[in-house]
Write a protein that binds this DNA or RNA. Structure first.
Lengths: 239, 239
DNA sequence: CGGATACTTGAATGTAATCAATCACAGTGG
DNA sequence: CCACTGTGATTGATTACATTCAAGTATCCG
């Protein structure tokens, strides 16, 4: 089974491989500054552009520098699923096998760091600290994906949306401060495909939350939390 | 975010760390025989027993020697989701963080190899080949979990069941030969929680497939494929 | 055997999907 | 400047699939 990973830093673990640029911040003793940036070159992709195709040889590891990308899987009849949204600092494209298992596309215009796979692997071989951080990222990703399984398998539409809004908001705010709003650069279709819903349902649920006074929608891409506690209750299923 | 992994070997990659016992088989040149068995002790658990609790300190890595275990996540109101079933040869319990993120329970009676986390990590530090195999397993697991996201997000009940039957059957048969039947040691409730369905739906769909002549059900735990091609078409959504 | 648990089947309900307009907005060209 | 066009978002009406509620049947284990 071809396997690529689409990494996002585990939100509560230490700064993962590649987060240094965005956040110079607190660095425990055992962590030499690894300049992932020095291993690759910057590339820009316009909105909607496919960055890697499913089945392409996995020769490059990427790090998101700005913008957002989505990883996409398709069924033969066209049904689509978005496995994850990757934000600046996230790393993707490392595959144990020789092929990428899913496509990756630019949500808006993005800039990425392209790192040749061999160079990335050489870093892992030579730098024990980098290795530990990378393994930590991968494990964090696994845990996050399992939360998503629970969401898709057992949560209602409202719970999925509430979970998505809060989780997306808090991925940016690493300061401990709970976010008061969230920017959604992706379309309703992307959100729907990420949450296993339809565009109409996403739209309806957002409207419902707005009518209930839990959120405001000054623009389609901007959600302001008016009652964060209530949203958190919904996530947990306490309705 | 606490993160544990529940590993199962990527089905199409080389024998992963820990598969040696079950399969001495073809071993590429760069692979010294790592005796994971020599690092830990055997323990037995009776049917239904909880092996690790979510939130427990992640001090032990396990390898399934016989039987099947399930990894379970719960919502506060009791809704349950089974993230994975682990078969003999599979490794679980390695967490980047210090806590297990989900519970692991014995499906039948099982015997496990308990390996102290420190000893497992020491192996990874010292043995580059073991490290590569482990990373490969983790990446394979990530890819498999993403397939499961697609299943939960976009597939119908029949497609989920067909996918589950074939995937489970083929996890055992590593000979290339497509399996002609599959043994299901877990209950319908376990299957339902794994596929995001209810027991009733699982039962109904199996009956439907039986009436259509695609499978036989000599016992509830034993499924014989009568038309594997048709099942594969259903998986892909070609109905 | 008897009791419990697991599985199957049936009927009714409900949540989200589908089908179908309408609305909002950005970009373009008259 | 403003109508025009196209895309994305919202809202409404209806449908469908899986769930829920409710028996009934098989199987396992004492």
């Amino acid at each position: 089974m071809a396997t690529a990973l689409t990494l996002q830093h585990p939100s509560r673990s230490f700064a993962p491989l590649g987060r240094q640029a965005a956040r110079p911040a607190p660095r425990p003793a055992d962590r030499p500054a690894v300049q992932l940036e020095s291993l690759g070159a910057l590339v820009a992709y316009p909105c909607g552009k496919t960055i890697v195709e499913a089945g392409d040889p996995a020769e490059t590891v990427f790090k998101v520098m700005s913008g957002v990308v989505r990883t996409v899987r398709l069924l033969p009849d066209g049904r689509r699923h978005v496995a994850s949204f990757l934000l600046p600092g996230d790393v993707f494209g490392y595959a144990a096998d020789e092929e990428y298992p899913c496509a990756v596309e630019a949500v808006g215009s993005v800039s990425l760091l392209r790192i040749p796979r061999a160079r990335f692997e050489a870093l892992l071989e030579s730098d024990a600290a980098a290795r530990r951080r990378f393994l930590s990222m991968v494990c964090g990703e696994l845990s996050a994906v399992q939360d998503q399984l629970l969401l898709l398998g057992r949560k209602t539409a409202v719970e999925r949306i509430a979970t998505f809004l809060l989780a997306t908001a808090d991925r940016r705010a690493r300061d401990g401060e709970p976010a008061r709003d969230v920017h959604l650069p992706m379309t309703r279709a992307d959100i729907a495909d990420y949450l296993g819903l339809t565009v109409e349902t996403v739209s309806r649920v957002l409207s419902q939350l707005r009518h209930q006074g839990l959120i405001e929608l000054p623009q389609a891409t901007h959600v302001v939390f008016r009652d964060r506690d209530a949203l958190e209750d919904i996530c947990a299923g306490d309705v």
